[in-house]
Design a protein around this nucleic acid. Sequence first.
DNA 1: GCCCCGGCGTATGTAGAGAC
DNA 2: GTCTCTACATACGCCGGGGC
Length: 303
Amino acid sequence: MTGPAVDELRRIDLNLLLALDALLDERNVTRAARRLGVTQPALSGALGRLRALFDDPLFVRTRHGVVPTPRAEALAEPLARWLADARELVAPARFEPAASERTFSISANDYMQHALLVPFARALERRAPRAALALWPQPEDLAAQLARGALDLAVTIAEWAPPDLPSRALYEERYVGIVRRGHAWTRRRPSLDAFCAAKHVLVSPAGGGLRGPTDDALALLGRQRRVALTVSSFLLVPGVVASRELVAVVPERLLGRQPGVARFALPVDLPPIRAIAVWHPRWHRDPAHAWARALLAEVAASI
DNA sequence: GCCCCGGCGTATGTAGAGAC
DNA sequence: GTCTCTACATACGCCGGGGC
Protein backbone atom coordinates (compact mmCIF):
# COMPACT_ATOMS: atom_id res chain seq x y z
CA MET A 1 0.00 0.00 0.00
CA THR A 2 1.45 3.37 -0.99
CA GLY A 3 0.64 7.02 -1.70
CA PRO A 4 -2.86 8.39 -1.07
CA ALA A 5 -4.09 5.19 0.56
CA VAL A 6 -1.36 5.43 3.21
CA ASP A 7 -2.06 9.12 3.76
CA GLU A 8 -5.74 8.33 4.35
CA LEU A 9 -4.85 5.72 6.97
CA ARG A 10 -2.45 8.11 8.70
CA ARG A 11 -5.39 10.46 9.31
CA ILE A 12 -7.22 7.75 11.23
CA ASP A 13 -6.64 7.60 14.96
CA LEU A 14 -7.64 4.22 16.37
CA ASN A 15 -9.00 6.02 19.44
CA LEU A 16 -11.43 7.88 17.17
CA LEU A 17 -12.77 4.60 15.83
CA LEU A 18 -13.15 3.30 19.38
CA ALA A 19 -15.05 6.49 20.22
CA LEU A 20 -17.32 5.98 17.22
CA ASP A 21 -17.94 2.40 18.28
CA ALA A 22 -18.84 3.49 21.83
CA LEU A 23 -21.14 6.25 20.53
CA LEU A 24 -22.91 3.83 18.20
CA ASP A 25 -23.46 1.48 21.14
CA GLU A 26 -24.42 3.98 23.82
CA ARG A 27 -26.11 6.71 21.71
CA ASN A 28 -25.19 9.07 24.54
CA VAL A 29 -21.97 11.08 24.63
CA THR A 30 -21.72 11.16 28.42
CA ARG A 31 -22.17 7.39 28.82
CA ALA A 32 -19.84 6.65 25.90
CA ALA A 33 -17.21 8.90 27.49
CA ARG A 34 -17.57 7.09 30.83
CA ARG A 35 -17.21 3.75 29.03
CA LEU A 36 -14.01 4.91 27.36
CA GLY A 37 -12.63 6.42 30.59
CA VAL A 38 -12.57 10.02 29.31
CA THR A 39 -14.61 13.09 30.17
CA GLN A 40 -17.64 14.18 28.21
CA PRO A 41 -15.89 17.20 26.62
CA ALA A 42 -13.02 14.96 25.56
CA LEU A 43 -15.40 12.64 23.77
CA SER A 44 -17.25 15.62 22.37
CA GLY A 45 -13.92 16.73 20.89
CA ALA A 46 -13.37 13.28 19.49
CA LEU A 47 -16.80 13.42 17.91
CA GLY A 48 -15.83 16.72 16.32
CA ARG A 49 -12.75 15.09 14.82
CA LEU A 50 -14.83 12.17 13.60
CA ARG A 51 -17.22 14.59 11.92
CA ALA A 52 -14.29 16.22 10.13
CA LEU A 53 -12.82 12.84 9.16
CA PHE A 54 -16.06 11.49 7.69
CA ASP A 55 -17.39 14.86 6.53
CA ASP A 56 -20.77 14.06 8.14
CA PRO A 57 -22.49 15.06 11.42
CA LEU A 58 -22.60 11.34 12.31
CA PHE A 59 -24.86 12.05 15.35
CA VAL A 60 -27.54 14.64 16.00
CA ARG A 61 -28.71 15.74 19.40
CA THR A 62 -32.00 14.62 20.91
CA ARG A 63 -33.61 15.12 24.30
CA HIS A 64 -32.03 11.97 25.72
CA GLY A 65 -28.73 11.81 23.86
CA VAL A 66 -27.74 11.49 20.23
CA VAL A 67 -29.00 9.47 17.27
CA PRO A 68 -26.78 8.32 14.44
CA THR A 69 -27.12 9.68 10.92
CA PRO A 70 -27.50 7.20 8.02
CA ARG A 71 -23.75 7.60 7.39
CA ALA A 72 -22.96 6.58 10.99
CA GLU A 73 -25.42 3.68 10.77
CA ALA A 74 -23.68 2.50 7.59
CA LEU A 75 -20.33 2.59 9.37
CA ALA A 76 -21.47 0.39 12.26
CA GLU A 77 -21.02 -3.03 10.66
CA PRO A 78 -17.67 -2.47 8.86
CA LEU A 79 -16.38 -0.71 11.97
CA ALA A 80 -17.27 -3.67 14.19
CA ARG A 81 -15.57 -5.99 11.69
CA TRP A 82 -12.48 -3.77 11.52
CA LEU A 83 -12.18 -3.55 15.29
CA ALA A 84 -12.55 -7.34 15.63
CA ASP A 85 -9.72 -7.76 13.08
CA ALA A 86 -7.62 -5.19 14.96
CA ARG A 87 -8.14 -7.04 18.25
CA GLU A 88 -7.15 -10.29 16.53
CA LEU A 89 -4.08 -8.56 15.09
CA VAL A 90 -2.73 -7.51 18.49
CA ALA A 91 -3.80 -10.67 20.33
CA PRO A 92 -0.94 -12.99 21.37
CA ALA A 93 0.10 -15.19 18.43
CA ARG A 94 -1.17 -18.76 18.59
CA PHE A 95 -0.22 -21.91 16.75
CA GLU A 96 -2.83 -24.55 16.00
CA PRO A 97 -0.96 -27.72 14.99
CA ALA A 98 -4.10 -29.49 13.76
CA ALA A 99 -4.89 -26.70 11.28
CA SER A 100 -1.36 -25.61 10.36
CA GLU A 101 -0.20 -25.98 6.76
CA ARG A 102 3.30 -24.77 7.59
CA THR A 103 6.34 -26.46 6.09
CA PHE A 104 9.18 -27.04 8.55
CA SER A 105 12.61 -27.10 6.88
CA ILE A 106 15.25 -28.95 8.87
CA SER A 107 18.79 -29.87 7.93
CA ALA A 108 20.79 -32.77 9.33
CA ASN A 109 23.30 -35.31 8.13
CA ASP A 110 21.87 -38.52 6.73
CA TYR A 111 22.40 -40.45 9.95
CA MET A 112 20.54 -37.92 12.10
CA GLN A 113 17.78 -37.77 9.52
CA HIS A 114 17.50 -41.55 9.81
CA ALA A 115 17.78 -41.74 13.60
CA LEU A 116 15.78 -38.67 14.65
CA LEU A 117 13.97 -36.94 11.84
CA VAL A 118 12.19 -40.00 10.44
CA PRO A 119 10.54 -40.57 13.86
CA PHE A 120 9.95 -36.81 14.04
CA ALA A 121 8.17 -36.95 10.67
CA ARG A 122 5.84 -39.64 12.05
CA ALA A 123 5.11 -37.55 15.16
CA LEU A 124 4.51 -34.47 13.01
CA GLU A 125 2.08 -36.42 10.81
CA ARG A 126 0.09 -37.41 13.90
CA ARG A 127 0.05 -33.99 15.60
CA ALA A 128 -0.05 -31.67 12.57
CA PRO A 129 -1.43 -33.73 9.69
CA ARG A 130 -1.63 -30.75 7.31
CA ALA A 131 1.90 -29.54 7.99
CA ALA A 132 4.86 -30.61 5.85
CA LEU A 133 8.46 -31.47 6.61
CA ALA A 134 11.35 -30.68 4.26
CA LEU A 135 14.62 -32.43 5.13
CA TRP A 136 17.85 -30.96 3.83
CA PRO A 137 21.46 -32.10 3.93
CA GLN A 138 23.68 -30.08 6.23
CA PRO A 139 24.81 -27.04 4.20
CA GLU A 140 28.31 -25.62 4.53
CA ASP A 141 26.86 -22.11 5.11
CA LEU A 142 24.51 -23.28 7.86
CA ALA A 143 24.42 -19.99 9.79
CA ALA A 144 23.58 -18.06 6.61
CA GLN A 145 20.81 -20.49 5.64
CA LEU A 146 19.27 -20.17 9.10
CA ALA A 147 19.56 -16.38 8.99
CA ARG A 148 17.89 -16.25 5.55
CA GLY A 149 15.02 -18.40 6.75
CA ALA A 150 15.78 -21.12 4.20
CA LEU A 151 16.04 -23.46 7.19
CA ASP A 152 13.93 -23.43 10.35
CA LEU A 153 16.24 -25.70 12.30
CA ALA A 154 19.46 -27.61 11.99
CA VAL A 155 20.16 -30.81 13.86
CA THR A 156 23.87 -31.18 14.36
CA ILE A 157 26.44 -31.93 17.03
CA ALA A 158 27.44 -29.26 19.51
CA GLU A 159 31.02 -29.02 18.22
CA TRP A 160 29.87 -28.23 14.68
CA ALA A 161 27.10 -25.75 15.52
CA PRO A 162 27.57 -22.11 14.49
CA PRO A 163 28.50 -20.07 17.57
CA ASP A 164 26.07 -17.57 19.16
CA LEU A 165 22.91 -19.27 17.93
CA PRO A 166 20.19 -20.48 20.30
CA SER A 167 20.28 -24.25 20.72
CA ARG A 168 18.61 -27.10 22.56
CA ALA A 169 20.15 -30.43 23.55
CA LEU A 170 18.38 -33.37 21.92
CA TYR A 171 20.15 -36.59 22.82
CA GLU A 172 23.51 -38.16 23.55
CA GLU A 173 24.90 -41.40 22.23
CA ARG A 174 28.26 -43.14 22.08
CA TYR A 175 30.38 -44.34 19.21
CA VAL A 176 30.83 -48.05 18.56
CA GLY A 177 33.16 -49.97 16.27
CA ILE A 178 31.67 -52.21 13.56
CA VAL A 179 33.20 -55.01 11.49
CA ARG A 180 31.80 -57.81 9.32
CA ARG A 181 29.87 -60.48 11.23
CA GLY A 182 32.21 -63.29 12.37
CA HIS A 183 35.25 -61.01 12.59
CA ALA A 184 37.68 -61.93 15.41
CA TRP A 185 37.20 -58.47 16.99
CA THR A 186 33.57 -59.25 17.79
CA ARG A 187 34.87 -61.84 20.30
CA ARG A 188 37.95 -60.03 21.60
CA ARG A 189 38.63 -56.29 21.87
CA PRO A 190 41.41 -55.37 19.43
CA SER A 191 44.67 -53.87 20.67
CA LEU A 192 45.29 -50.23 19.94
CA ASP A 193 48.06 -51.27 17.51
CA ALA A 194 45.73 -53.62 15.63
CA PHE A 195 42.98 -50.97 15.58
CA CYS A 196 45.32 -48.35 14.10
CA ALA A 197 46.75 -50.80 11.54
CA ALA A 198 43.32 -51.88 10.24
CA LYS A 199 41.75 -50.34 7.12
CA HIS A 200 39.12 -47.81 8.25
CA VAL A 201 36.05 -46.38 6.59
CA LEU A 202 35.50 -42.73 7.39
CA VAL A 203 32.30 -40.77 6.82
CA SER A 204 32.93 -37.37 5.34
CA PRO A 205 29.55 -35.77 4.50
CA ALA A 206 31.23 -32.99 2.53
CA GLY A 207 33.44 -35.53 0.77
CA GLY A 208 37.19 -36.01 0.87
CA GLY A 209 37.85 -35.23 4.54
CA LEU A 210 40.23 -37.69 6.20
CA ARG A 211 39.74 -36.80 9.87
CA GLY A 212 37.00 -37.41 12.38
CA PRO A 213 36.48 -37.66 16.16
CA THR A 214 38.33 -41.01 16.20
CA ASP A 215 41.41 -39.40 14.65
CA ASP A 216 41.29 -36.59 17.21
CA ALA A 217 41.12 -39.09 20.10
CA LEU A 218 44.01 -41.10 18.65
CA ALA A 219 46.05 -37.95 18.14
CA LEU A 220 45.78 -37.26 21.90
CA LEU A 221 47.51 -40.63 22.39
CA GLY A 222 50.10 -39.85 19.73
CA ARG A 223 48.59 -42.44 17.40
CA GLN A 224 47.11 -42.44 13.92
CA ARG A 225 44.79 -44.85 12.12
CA ARG A 226 44.75 -45.87 8.47
CA VAL A 227 41.77 -44.46 6.54
CA ALA A 228 41.35 -46.57 3.41
CA LEU A 229 37.95 -45.32 2.27
CA THR A 230 35.79 -42.25 2.77
CA VAL A 231 32.08 -42.21 2.02
CA SER A 232 29.66 -39.31 2.05
CA SER A 233 26.87 -41.13 3.89
CA PHE A 234 26.69 -42.88 7.25
CA LEU A 235 24.03 -45.17 5.81
CA LEU A 236 26.55 -46.64 3.33
CA VAL A 237 28.93 -47.75 6.06
CA PRO A 238 27.28 -51.02 7.23
CA GLY A 239 26.99 -52.28 3.65
CA VAL A 240 30.62 -51.46 2.90
CA VAL A 241 31.90 -53.02 6.14
CA ALA A 242 29.79 -56.20 5.67
CA SER A 243 31.40 -57.03 2.35
CA ARG A 244 35.07 -56.12 2.94
CA GLU A 245 37.86 -56.33 5.50
CA LEU A 246 37.16 -52.82 6.74
CA VAL A 247 36.34 -51.37 10.13
CA ALA A 248 34.35 -48.28 11.01
CA VAL A 249 33.47 -46.18 14.02
CA VAL A 250 29.82 -45.08 13.91
CA PRO A 251 27.07 -43.76 16.19
CA GLU A 252 25.56 -46.64 18.16
CA ARG A 253 22.01 -46.22 16.80
CA LEU A 254 23.24 -46.62 13.23
CA LEU A 255 24.00 -50.25 13.92
CA GLY A 256 20.39 -51.24 14.64
CA ARG A 257 19.66 -54.59 13.05
CA GLN A 258 22.05 -54.24 10.14
CA PRO A 259 22.66 -57.68 8.59
CA GLY A 260 26.23 -58.78 8.06
CA VAL A 261 27.90 -56.47 10.62
CA ALA A 262 28.58 -56.68 14.34
CA ARG A 263 29.96 -54.29 16.91
CA PHE A 264 33.26 -54.52 18.70
CA ALA A 265 34.68 -52.77 21.80
CA LEU A 266 36.85 -49.78 20.88
CA PRO A 267 40.38 -49.66 22.29
CA VAL A 268 40.22 -45.88 22.56
CA ASP A 269 37.85 -43.62 24.50
CA LEU A 270 35.74 -41.30 22.35
CA PRO A 271 33.62 -38.45 23.63
CA PRO A 272 29.87 -39.01 23.29
CA ILE A 273 27.92 -37.50 20.41
CA ARG A 274 25.82 -34.59 21.71
CA ALA A 275 23.07 -33.92 19.20
CA ILE A 276 21.51 -30.47 19.39
CA ALA A 277 19.02 -28.37 17.47
CA VAL A 278 20.09 -24.85 16.49
CA TRP A 279 18.04 -22.01 15.03
CA HIS A 280 18.19 -18.30 14.32
CA PRO A 281 17.19 -15.94 17.19
CA ARG A 282 14.39 -14.39 15.13
CA TRP A 283 12.47 -17.68 15.38
CA HIS A 284 12.95 -17.93 19.12
CA ARG A 285 9.48 -16.66 20.08
CA ASP A 286 7.60 -17.88 17.02
CA PRO A 287 4.83 -20.15 18.38
CA ALA A 288 5.00 -22.62 15.47
CA HIS A 289 8.77 -22.82 15.71
CA ALA A 290 8.70 -23.28 19.49
CA TRP A 291 6.10 -26.03 19.08
CA ALA A 292 8.28 -27.84 16.50
CA ARG A 293 11.35 -27.56 18.76
CA ALA A 294 9.41 -29.02 21.68
CA LEU A 295 8.13 -31.88 19.52
CA LEU A 296 11.66 -32.56 18.25
CA ALA A 297 12.96 -32.72 21.84
CA GLU A 298 10.09 -35.02 22.79
CA VAL A 299 10.90 -37.37 19.90
CA ALA A 300 14.64 -37.22 20.73
CA ALA A 301 13.89 -38.30 24.29
CA SER A 302 11.97 -41.31 23.05
CA ILE A 303 14.41 -42.76 20.50
C1' DG B 1 16.61 22.89 24.66
C1' DC B 2 13.01 25.06 22.29
C1' DC B 3 8.88 25.22 19.71
C1' DC B 4 4.73 23.42 17.78
C1' DC B 5 0.81 20.56 17.75
C1' DG B 6 -2.73 17.61 19.35
C1' DG B 7 -5.39 15.70 23.03
C1' DC B 8 -7.24 16.07 27.53
C1' DG B 9 -9.63 18.18 31.66
C1' DT B 10 -12.04 22.02 33.87
C1' DA B 11 -15.19 25.53 33.57
C1' DT B 12 -18.76 27.39 31.23
C1' DG B 13 -22.14 28.17 27.47
C1' DT B 14 -26.08 26.51 24.79
C1' DA B 15 -30.15 23.91 23.54
C1' DG B 16 -34.16 21.17 24.33
C1' DA B 17 -37.76 19.27 27.18
C1' DG B 18 -40.55 18.86 31.27
C1' DA B 19 -42.68 20.87 35.52
C1' DC B 20 -44.96 24.52 37.60
C1' DG C 1 -43.19 32.41 30.78
C1' DT C 2 -39.81 30.85 33.74
C1' DC C 3 -37.14 27.61 36.17
C1' DT C 4 -34.70 23.31 36.32
C1' DC C 5 -32.54 19.35 34.58
C1' DT C 6 -30.02 16.85 31.16
C1' DA C 7 -26.81 16.50 27.54
C1' DC C 8 -23.67 18.30 24.05
C1' DA C 9 -20.41 22.13 22.51
C1' DT C 10 -16.83 25.44 23.22
C1' DA C 11 -12.98 28.16 25.38
C1' DC C 12 -8.88 27.88 27.59
C1' DG C 13 -4.87 26.15 29.83
C1' DC C 14 -1.86 22.22 30.65
C1' DC C 15 0.96 18.48 29.25
C1' DG C 16 3.45 15.17 26.49
C1' DG C 17 5.48 13.80 22.14
C1' DG C 18 7.86 14.84 17.98
C1' DG C 19 10.70 17.71 14.99
C1' DC C 20 14.48 20.79 14.53
